[in-house]
Design a protein around this nucleic acid. Sequence first.
RNA 1: GAGGGUGUAGCUCAGUCGGUAGAGCAACGGACUUUUAAUCCGUAGGUCUCGGGUUCGAGCCCCGACACCCUCACCA
Length: 538
Amino acid sequence: MGVSEGDHGNTGGNTGGTPAVRDVGIHEAARRGNLRKLVELGVDPWGHRWDDRQWIGDARDRANEVRFRRADGTELDLPTLEGEGPIDYRAWKAEHGPGEETGPQVRVAGRILLQRPTGKLIFLNLRDWTGDIQIFIGQKQVGEASWKVAQCLDLGDLVGIDGRLGRTNTGELTVFAERLTFLCKAIEPPPEKHHGLVDVEMRQRRRYVDILHTPGVLDTFLRRTRIVKSIRRTLDSHDFCEIEGPTLHTIAGGAAARPFTTHHNALGLDLYMRIALELHLKRLLVGGMERVYELGRVYRNEGISPKHNPEFTMLEVYQAFGDYRSMMDLTEQIIVDAIRAIGAELRLPWGRTTIDFQPPFARKTYDDLFGEHTNVDPADPDAIVAYARDQGLAVDGKHPDVVKSDVFEAFVEDGLKGPVFVMDYPASICPLTKRKAGHPEIAERFELFVDGMEVANAYTELNDPDLQENLFRTQLAGQSEEDSMAKMDHDFIRALRNGMPPAGGLGIGIDRLVMILTNSPSIRDVILFPLLRPESQA
RNA sequence: GAGGGUGUAGCUCAGUCGGUAGAGCAACGGACUUUUAAUCCGUAGGUCUCGGGUUCGAGCCCCGACACCCUCACCA
């Protein structure tokens, strides 16, 4: 850094919360200098209420109100920049004059992204979350007080502008400032103005900078909120009610994953962060909440990858007297509604390809896909084990259906472009699922795959308490207890003994759905604050 | 957990064969009332991620650590 406090003489003695002992970089020193000048002008550098303004996007929408009034009283529309380069608006005025431009009064606020001072005139590019607009600040036009404030502006500061909407000589829509109101100082400089923040690690650690300066980031996260709102709207329109279940569990049930552990001091109780929403929602089915869902965070203590974050958002839905086919229709509607909610087409770009979400999505059985992709008879366990061994998969000591599942995951799932519903899984790997009538070896379960990624998972829910208890007791061969979904939960069994209506249940990984709908290659592109190791404080 | 890659100014990036650390933007000083990544003149800014080693000499070679990215494994 090299610039110590004394060098510029503008950090010492500052009582506005400046850290007492710290090497202040040249950028911070300059900004603190401007901050002090503002204070000397009697301006609060941290601003005040300014909520009677309009969005920049709304101001831009008033562009058609900017008109040219000729001396004879007639009004003309202005030429616009539609698709073309800059316009020589000065020449246009000379041609159509004499006259003057008129435009509506606007009040906007935003962050200074670019500054182009040209002597007694400053152009700003101002941004709020609805868009950008150019500001014209002329020394004569804006008045002495505002001009003095304008001399203290740094990139990244927040300002409010009162002025008239108009166009500059090049035709650019601009607010011609009549008053400048300072709203907040930025002590840290923004990133490089052409490229923004590029370093992936810094983008994640300083998401506030990323959202502001990396193109498309704000849009992706706003789309995420629209998708989530749309999902709630779709479910609410079918009379589902949203609940909040416990996130601290004494038994980490409902899925096969390693949990995070935690501890309650007063109770002296070790607890798990939930890995799924399932078992409590089903208890509510027993309790008569016939259509119920939760949209919330679950935690899995597993590896991190472009498709996995330790905490992620899950939707689980349960519908009394439905089954997995009801859930298939609902899944389609949730996704199609969400795509419409973000104003996208049903044919969505995905990397270098597109994915077509025109319903109905393909529906194929597990065994059919298994046979298509492996040329092995899905009903022949010996052939499957032999195939798995040939392909180098570990088979020793594993239940044949586990081997079949391993083969499916290794050689079928990745090839599923989708969207495709994979239906009817081997019952032995689905301990919470009802068996198909007349086919006890097949579970009424589907998973929705898009580009090899599991996006949704649904069952016809198992509601036979005796069978459920048996499945909890029977560990599958080759599965360690901690890897198994089948963790005994006596209270859940007791709930089933009170009678759970036959039902369909559905789980959707919200982060993955958002990835696909926003064409984001990594789950960390759709999670605001993904887990990172702490920054070293050196 | 295994393998590969990256780490240089506030930011974005160069850095040749191992021989004095570079640019653009940002910053500072100056000029400029219609600019568009404004322009022009000048100035300042570095623990080359960290720690060892080899060498007369290391941003560069070797060893180790840390962080992030990618692939694989566990998982959704």
